[in-house]
């Protein structure tokens, strides 16, 4: 019993550490022999099948039918999970209040509170910024975290293929590709040329303006329409234009994978800590040390300005990262 437990623990440990059997070492089960009619079945094989021990027979059966049964189980379980989730969601929808009722939560005092006391309570002239970065800042934090997580997972997936690129040159040759696409239209071969004079001239004129515009939109997020998401998108377009005009190496000099990870995680940490502090003080009725400032000044709105800058950094890095990863496979 103790030995079995040890074996199970060792297998689990190997599985966690990634030392288990690798998919490329896996033995592909042989094709099951075609089912001959009963009269033509070879006699010796028939008897041998019955003479084999139970375990060997189980192994043979597993080799032939295992994958099939696994596929059936997998499909069944996923269908079951989907049905459970869908029925839960439908039950929640059935519990929702009726549409257009006057006592619905959307029609209660929240909106009036936002419009009448929003500027006074958040210190932001732009009520939408006060809404998304003060009243509902937790929601915005989740959105930024989702963006960052998506970028990091793409980085992991494509980065792994980049690291393996040096030792596997097993891409199908063009002849083999052509054999598969006889009836398809001729393939468009793409060669990336980086010496476009017109694009460079336009980029050198417009990149500073775009960067300035993005910074203005981010920093004035609590005063005028804009904010972290839109400003970050503008900043990332400047980066993408720079990468297209001067090549990705030029952007690498000041913005690479490491810069992205460091800046985005720092921004997320600052966001979580500062907003956690503000939620803590607000929920416990402790006086917060963060000043609100006078409405309309650039230094006002309490935490909204630094939070906008954090969100802008994350969005700019993520959007540029997606472009660079999917076009170059590198960042």
């Amino acid at each position: 019993m103790n030995e079995e437990l040890k074996n199970i623990w060792r297998a689990f440990f190997n599985w966690v550490m990634g030392n288990g059997p690798r998919p490329e070492n896996e033995v592909i089960p042989p094709e099951p022999p075609p089912d001959l009619p009963f009269t033509q079945k070879p006699h010796d094989k028939y008897t041998r099948f019955h003479e084999a021990t139970l375990k060997e027979r189980y192994n043979q059966w597993l080799e032939i039918h295992g994958l099939h049964i696994f596929a059936i189980l997998y499909t069944g379980l996923s269908v079951l999970t989907c049905i459970v989730i869908v029925s839960l969601l439908l039950a929640t929808v059935a519990e929702l209040p009726p549409f257009g009722h006057e006592r619905n939560p959307a029609n209660n005092e929240v909106i009036r509170r936002y419009v009448e006391h929003g500027g006074h309570e958040t210190g932001a002239q732009n009520i939408v910024a006060g809404l998304i970065l003060d009243y509902r800042a937790f929601d915005t934090f989740g959105e930024s975290a989702v963006l960052f997580t998506a970028a990091v997972s793409v980085l992991m997936l494509l980065g792994a293929s980049r690291r393996n690129k040096t030792d596997t040159h097993s891409l199908p040759s063009s002849n083999a590709m052509d054999a598969y696409s006889i009836h398809a239209p001729p393939m468009r071969h793409h060669t990336f040329r980086k010496d476009d004079v017109i694009l460079r001239a336009v980029a050198s004129l417009s990149i500073p303006v775009i960067l300035m515009m993005g910074c203005v939109v981010v920093i004035n997020g609590h005063l005028s329409p804009g904010g972290g998401f839109s400003g970050g998108a503008i900043l990332s377009t400047a980066l993408i234009l720079c990468a297209n005009a001067y090549g990705f190496e030029r952007v690498h000099e000041f913005f690479n994978e490491r810069t992205f990870i460091v800046s985005s995680s720092t921004a997320l940490m600052i966001y979580a800590l500062s907003k956690g502090y503000s939620f803590f003080t607000g929920a416990n009725h402790i006086h917060s040390v963060i000043p609100k400032g006078t409405i309309g000044n650039i230094l006002s709105g309490g935490l909204i300005l630094p939070l906008n800058i954090c969100v802008g950094l994350i969005v700019a890095g993520t959007l540029y990262g997606f472009y660079a990863l999917f076009s170059e496979g590198d960042m």
Partner: peptide
């Protein structure tokens, strides 16, 4: 006037470089 000719130029260049026919 700055961006539109450049964008059209890039689209045309992409067509010339990628269309084999």
């Amino acid at each position: 006037w700055l961006c539109n000719p450049a964008a059209s130029h890039l689209v045309a260049r992409a067509e010339v470089e990628t269309n084999p026919a």
